[in-house]
């Protein structure tokens, strides 16, 4: 699974993307966030509740209940601020 980071998440974690192999129990965006938070103290801080991290799965905005599968491209980012 390809994970991408944008804006302050990318800066805070020091990487723009990483390749991960989530365990079989990771079925939703919510599961994936819990899994990602356990990767390092920096991840734990970035994915902490209240940071408002948003997600897109395969180029579509996703909610915590949306499914994730091996091979998906999953992006994490702060709330968008375009326009």
């Amino acid at each position: 699974m390809k994970i991408l980071y944008f804006a302050w998440l990318r800066e805070r974690l020091g990487v723009a993307e990483e390749e991960i192999m989530p365990p079989p129990g990771v079925a939703t965006v919510r599961d994936l966030i819990a899994h990602m938070a356990a990767r390092s103290p920096a991840h734990a801080e970035a994915f902490a509740a209240g940071k408002g991290v948003r997600c897109a799965v395969n180029l579509d905005f996703a909610t915590p209940d949306d499914p994730v599968r091996p091979g998906d491209e999953v992006a994490f980012f702060p709330p968008v601020t375009g326009g």
Binding site: F77, T81, G82
Partner: peptide, 24 residues
């Protein structure tokens, strides 16, 4: 809709001090 449903992020660079990400 494009302000809230398109993947853009603004970072402000002040004349002095550190850059800061704009909050939604």
């Amino acid at each position: 809709w494009l302000k809230t449903k398109a993947p853009f992020w603004k970072r402000e660079e002040p004349r002095e001090g550190a850059p800061r990400w704009v909050e939604a």
